[in-house]
Nucleic acid binder design. Structure first.
Length: 433
DNA sequence: TTCAATGATTAATT
DNA sequence: AATTAATCATTGAA
């Protein structure tokens, strides 16, 4: 009972003091009259602590009243700041180390991948538009793009899910953060909470949410990878090139048999003509070279076919070239070999064509295009010559620029003529499956 | 179903 | 970076 009375009295005192403070003047408290200022403050603090200790015993109304009283006490700000400081120090010592952790490398990887796959980042409307344009530009690639449109549709689906989920998370995170911040700010009126602490709390919340986000990103990445492996693995969805494209490629190949390495520009040209990509052209030539070299006999028929195809033009052009060189015009301009694969300046050196079937070619220096025409001519010659030298099995002759070591020397070879009637069925070395 | 043909990928090489 | 050689995975004809 006695305690209670004293408390009530103190409350009255505190309230009074508070009011006086609010009034604008920091008057000494009622108890402060008896001695020094220090004594009064001590008394104040004692009172406050006492009140805090006993506040749980009070009824709600009383507690509210007391709270108000405490809030208005003139010592409150100072005490709070001191308490904040103490908390700050202890809190920091507890978990001060993991303040600014570096960005998670795994998260970064995921982010990069999502960005690369076009899941994260800006809406790739341009991408689909470009693809559509490419499809429109190239009729042959239509089926290809249809294939990809399926992939794109699925990717867009993933993308949408990812973005809505991400947005949801973000929104939830923000909501939660503001909620917590409000709560803490509210509490900071009655509890010593420093801004730094709030900040830290926000950081913790963000970390938690970002770990959830990481899971989302991880599963999205997985989904994309699966989609990718199913749709974009070209080995699975291999399409044969159109007959036309193969034709063009073969024409080039056999008319440049001495050096079937199209320059970058030539590749681009071929790619455009065949409605395929440059790397596809490179693949094709890579495969062709190796397979041709491995089993020339098998390709003989094909070679002759394409040789015959271009024979007329080539013969024409070659004749013109020879005439030109005989007329000692030093540079042979494009002798317009049928318009196709006219290497503009393919870096081919001037070739001294001495030994075309042993004949010494007096035209000494002609351009690469002529060389290719000569290649073609060789086929024609070989075809008409009918030089059946009994290539029953794998007698490796070195036709054209293919030297004994298996390299394509652009120098001319002393090619004795080729057997045209050599059926397939020599060594089948590529059929390793 | 089988199997050669073929486009793509990969590791090694230059 | 381009190419070779080996290999993979699919296509399409038989």
């Amino acid at each position: 009972m006695d305690d209670q009375a004293r408390i009530m009295q103190s409350i009255g005192g505190v309230s009074l003091a508070g009011h006086s403070v609010q009034g604008g003047m920091a008057l000494p408290p009622p108890h402060g009259h008896d001695g020094t200022d220090g004594d009064g403050r001590k008394q104040d603090i004692g009172d406050i602590l006492h009140q805090i200790m006993t506040i749980t015993d009070q009824s709600l109304d009383e507690a509210q009243a007391k709270k108000h009283g405490l809030n208005c006490h003139r010592m409150k700000p100072a005490l709070f700041s001191v308490l904040c400081e103490i908390k700050e120090k202890t809190g920091l010592s507890i978990r001060g180390a993991q303040e600014e952790d570096p960005p998670d490398p795994q998260l970064m990887r995921l982010d990069n991948m999502l960005l690369a796959e076009g899941v994260a980042g800006p809406e790739k409307g341009g991408g689909s538009a470009a693809a559509a344009a490419a499809a429109a530009a190239s009729g042959g690639a239509a089926d290809n793009s249809i294939e990809h449109s399926d992939y794109r549709a699925k990717l867009t689906q993933i993308r949408q899910i990812y973005h809505t989920e991400l947005e949801k998370y973000e929104q939830a995170c923000n909501e939660f953060t503001t909620h917590v911040m409000n709560l803490l700010r509210e509490q900071s009126r009655t509890r010593p909470i420093s801004p730094k602490e709030i900040e830290r709390m926000v950081g913790i919340i963000h970390r938690k949410f970002s770990s959830i986000q990481m899971q989302l990103k991880q599963s999205t990445c997985e989904a994309v990878m699966i989609l990718r492996s199913r749709f974009l693995d070209a080995r699975r969805k291999r399409r044969n090139f159109s007959k036309q494209a193969t034709e063009i490629l073969n024409e080039y190949f056999y008319s440049h048999l001495s050096n079937p390495y199209p320059s970058e520009e030539a590749k681009e040209e071929l790619a455009k003509k065949c409605s395929i990509t440059v790397s596809q052209v490179s693949n094709w030539f890579g495969n062709k070279r190796i397979r041709y070299k491995k089993n020339i006999g098998k390709f003989q028929e094909e070679a002759n076919l394409y040789a015959a195809k271009t024979a007329v033009n080539a013969a024409h052009a070659a004749a013109a070239a020879v005439q030109n060189s005989q007329a000692n015009s030093p540079t042979t301009p494009n002798s317009g070999s049928s318009g196709s694969f006219n290497l503009p300046n393919s870096g081919d050196m001037f070739l001294s064509m001495q030994s075309l079937n042993g004949d010494s070619y007096q035209g000494a220096q002609v351009g690469a295009n002529v060389q290719s025409q000569v290649d073609t001519l060789r086929h024609v010659i070989s075809q008409t010559a009918g030089y059946n030298d009994a290539l029953g099995g794998n007698t490796m002759y070195s036709p054209h620029g293919l030297n004994a070591n298996g390299g394509w020397q652009d120098a001319t070879t002393p090619s004795s003529v080729i057997s045209p009637t050599e059926g397939p069925g020599s060594v089948h070395s590529d059929t390793s499956n």
